[in-house]
Simulated assay, not measured.
Amino acid sequence: MYGISGPSLHRLTQETRALGCLHCGSNEYVAIESIDSLPPHPGELHVEVEYACRRCQGSYQHRARFRDVAAILNRTKTLEGLFRFAGEYFHCGEAMRVEGTGVRNIHAPLPAREPELDDGVSVGTRVLRCRCGFRLELPN
């Protein structure tokens, strides 16, 4: 019998760790890049988080307590770069707006023996813009 927590709570706890750079030993320079939800689980709310250390450029992805992520996001200097949350992209601390759409041709030279396949691929894109002028083009 597993009791109230069930078998998955123990596994979740083992995979969850505090946010922070393992090299620098601190969360002072952490910049959150994305947060994703996890399937429903008992106990405290946890999320999958990706972040980088602005000091040493280390990158991390793991499960973390939501309250730890929120504490870092509440520090204003953490949203200096590009951030993705709930399908939205944020820059300068606010959601970017769709400016339009486009088409990009992705082309890579192929060996000379296959010239008929050398046309490339066209990919539809959407263009997002931040109030500061930062633009991001994403494949549709």
Rank of each mutant, 00 (worst) to 15 (best):
H107E: 06
E116M: 14
P7D: 07
P111C: 06
H41I: 05
D36K: 11
E137F: 04
G6A: 03
C92Y: 10
T78H: 08
M96R: 08
L138M: 09
V127C: 12
Q57W: 12
H107W: 15
D36R: 09
H23M: 13
Q57R: 12
R126C: 10
L9A: 11
R129Q: 05
P111R: 06
V121D: 06
D119W: 14
T78P: 09
S5T: 12
L117M: 14
G124I: 09
E15W: 00
G133Y: 00
L9M: 08
I72L: 15
S37C: 12
E137Y: 04
E137S: 09
P40C: 04
P39T: 02
G3I: 06
G124H: 12
I32W: 00
Y51L: 01
E99H: 15
E114G: 00
V30L: 02
M96K: 02
G87W: 09
G102E: 05
G81E: 11
K77L: 15
A112C: 11
V30W: 01
L38Q: 07
P139W: 00
R97C: 11
A52N: 04
G25D: 02
R104S: 10
T125Y: 13
P42F: 07
E28W: 00
R55Q: 10
G102V: 01
A70F: 14
Q61V: 03
L117C: 09
E28P: 00
L73A: 12
D119R: 15
Y29T: 03
I32Y: 02
P139G: 07
P42Q: 02
E44S: 11
A52L: 13
H23R: 15
A95V: 12
R63Q: 13
A70G: 05
G43M: 00
N140T: 11
R11G: 00
R67W: 05
F83R: 04
C132A: 07
A18K: 09
G20N: 06
M1V: 07
Q14N: 01
R84C: 13
R17G: 03
L128R: 02
S59F: 13
T125M: 08
A64D: 07
C132E: 07
G3V: 09
L117R: 15
V47Q: 04
C24F: 03
T101K: 12
F83C: 08
E28I: 00
R131A: 13
E33G: 02
R11A: 13
T13I: 08
A71S: 15
S122W: 11
I35L: 05
Y29P: 02
E88K: 12
L110V: 06
E50T: 10
R113D: 05
E114L: 12
Y2G: 13
T16R: 05
H62Y: 05
V121R: 05
F83L: 05
E33D: 03
L128Y: 04
T78G: 03
V103W: 09
C130E: 10
R63C: 11
R75P: 00
R113L: 07
A64G: 15
V121T: 11
P7Q: 10
Y60G: 07
R135C: 11
S122V: 05
M1Y: 06
R129F: 04
V49R: 05
R126N: 02
